[in-house]
Design a protein around this nucleic acid. Structure first.
Lengths: 221, 221
DNA sequence: GCACTATTGAATACAAGTACCCACGGCGTT
DNA sequence: AACGCCGTGGGTACTTGTATTCAATAGTGC
């Protein structure tokens, strides 16, 4: 300690710029391949180049922005053939998370997951609600696993996954299937077999991949 | 090519600072938990705060540097209990890479790998040489797989893995075992069965994990 | 081929915030 | 009554975050 503190709790401008740009890239508001220049972004966002620069660096490291050989940068173009690739990675990372969660889980944790599964069954008709609960289910598992590095990598991969997801206006409609898969993950976790938990999660994510690939592939533009 | 190309820009400045600091953290020259301040780093490295800042941001995003709640930053402390975690991740990412490589591989690719395996057998006695060839073997597989995202994540995880590795002065001496494992990976690739290739690679990395955990755990100081 | 322009990279200057240090005063104890 | 301890308050110093300025380079139009 030295004295200086930076207001970490308050979101710094650079962090805000990063999150904003990331969201815009993922949502597609910043189109794939769109050219990005620091001065323009800075003036658009009403800040100086400095925070923009930092945000850009992070986005480049994350792979959401490409640095052109000429020196400029652009939103990383999307290649439909890569959907499978990012989902393959996600499947393994989330699978590992499920495995870790399985070994660290306590009874209350399991109960909480059971409640989510129950909710999912009862709201089976409401697709968006099922999706929301599904996300919470995954988040809960990540929380239980307490695997900092896996979380970190997953955050990055999820960015890419979500880019492809946002290509199709509608989520792949496979509500019943999703419920069944989550149920399977829950049962695997409850069984206490880490290998089985990892497998169940992997299968689930890979199923999502298939749906997403179909949905994205069917999109005109 | 005669005149300065754009890549000169990439190498100098912030990128250089990033790579230097990263190497120092991995090697342990920057001790775990050591406090890092921008002005001090800047004056030490003979540059201004700006490139230091950018490098720090990347290292923070990578998890090699922690941002303290108070605002400062420090080299992320090492927790021996996490060795298994980072290796688990690496095992799955490298496994996936092996799988992808298996499906994309051409005969010349396979031949190149065969040459490496052959070399490894012939230099079986020279531990450092076996290690070098092992690294090249993995690099070649990554090259064949052409999985940009996997590479990117692996780069990050490898940073953490190498930090733990550098804890033990000597590499875990299991040369024959390593040769056998690489041989197994090669055979799996040659068989053309992606699942088998992934498994072989995963087993190999997990074996390394066990050795590394023992070596790091046995370190006196 | 040359000048111009636009953009990035680096350095410096400026603003803001917080923890540490120390001095001071009140209070309890001897 | 004197001495010491504790809590508090302000000043200081160090650090981060942002803006601005300067330099260099590549691309473009004439």
């Amino acid at each position: 300690m030295t004295r200086g503190q930076a207001n970490l709790r308050r979101q710094s401008g650079a962090q805000a710029v990063y999150e904003l740009m990331r969201a815009k890239i993922i949502s597609g508001e910043f189109r794939p391949g769109a050219r990005l220049t620091e001065p323009e972004l800075a003036s658009t966002l009403g800040v100086s180049r400095t925070p923009v620069r930092e945000a850009l660096r992070l986005l480049i490291a994350e792979g959401l922005v490409d640095q052109l050989p000429t020196g400029g940068s652009r939103v990383t173009p999307l290649d439909l053939a890569d959907i499978r690739r990012v989902y393959d990675i996600r499947a393994r990372l989330e699978g590992l998370l499920a495995r870790d969660a399985c070994t660290r889980m306590t009874q209350p944790d399991l109960d909480a997951l059971a409640r989510l599964i129950d909710l999912m069954h009862r709201l089976r008709g409401d697709e968006t609600e099922v999706l929301r609960i599904g996300r919470e289910f995954h988040a809960r598992i990540a929380e239980i696993a307490e695997n900092r590095w896996c979380d970190q990598l997953l955050h990055q991969i999820r960015g890419h996954v979500d880019r492809y997801r946002s290509l199709s206006t509608r989520e792949p409609g496979r509500p019943d299937l999703a419920v069944a898969e989550h149920q399977a993950i829950y049962e695997a976790l409850a069984s206490g077999d880490p290998e089985r938990a990892e497998q169940a999660m992997r299968v689930h994510v890979e199923q999502s991949a298939t749906s997403a690939a179909q949905a994205a592939g069917a999109v005109p533009s």
